[in-house]
Amino acid sequence: MSIIKRNNVTIRGTGDQVMMFAHGFGCDQHMWRYIVPAFEDDYKVVMFDHVGAGNSDLSAYNYEKYDHLDGYAADIVEIATALQLQDIIFVGHSVSAIIGLMAAEIAPKIFKSLILVAPSPCYINDEGYTGGFKKDEIDELLESLNSNHLGWSMAMGPVIMGNSDRKELAEELSNSFCKTDPEIAKHFARTTFLTDKRHILPHVKLPSLILQCSNDVIAPIEVGEYMHQNMPNSTLVIMNATGHCPNLSAPDETTAAIKAFLLNEQ
């Protein structure tokens, strides 16, 4: 099966310089919709859905492979190899920022710089580290996903309607953006929120931009500061934007910060 189809890779824009956008947990490539227009005149924009998300090929989901973020990182390298991409400016949101760091560790040559939007290398508090969550809170999240507590109607809509001839009903019930298979969402949540990748931060030598939001429940300000301290070639920008998705809540501010960083790097 083609990697392009597996990850629902889409390519837009004109230009030789590649920008690759990777969405985070709970979303798909649609989340870049307010950011990409600002770049497609000057860059070749590559977007994709992680396997299990959006319009990726769900049959390619492998519980062993995606039990660790390494599986997702390998996919990014595979996409770059399949498309023969070089000198990529990688933009990753949330967990995909960390997946990007891991991909850069496997194949440093294919990346030029890393833009990390609301990243966190570890969500759970530890001695001398504020991740934002206590271990039992993450356990509670996983438990609520386990009992299929979340997204009941979104998950059930298509299942109830099944392959019936009333397809329009299923479509009406489920959301067209950020579709999630409940089983895969559960597994992705486990993989994401139990991750601790703090040890790889010092290995990243590529120029990196950390875009930290002001009031982000998922990645509090201490996390951005921690990353900046531990990544030798990093720039930290603390944005006015609040929440976890500045690409949706403050696209102008996000775009401006990315452009300023890229200008500086030229």
């Binding site: 509670e140 999240l141 609520s144 979340l150 998922i218």
Partner: peptide, 10 residues
């Protein structure tokens, strides 16, 4: 907490 993360990410 489950809903909180779900709300922010999805």
């Amino acid at each position: 907490v489950g809903g909180k993360i779900y709300f922010e990410t999805h």
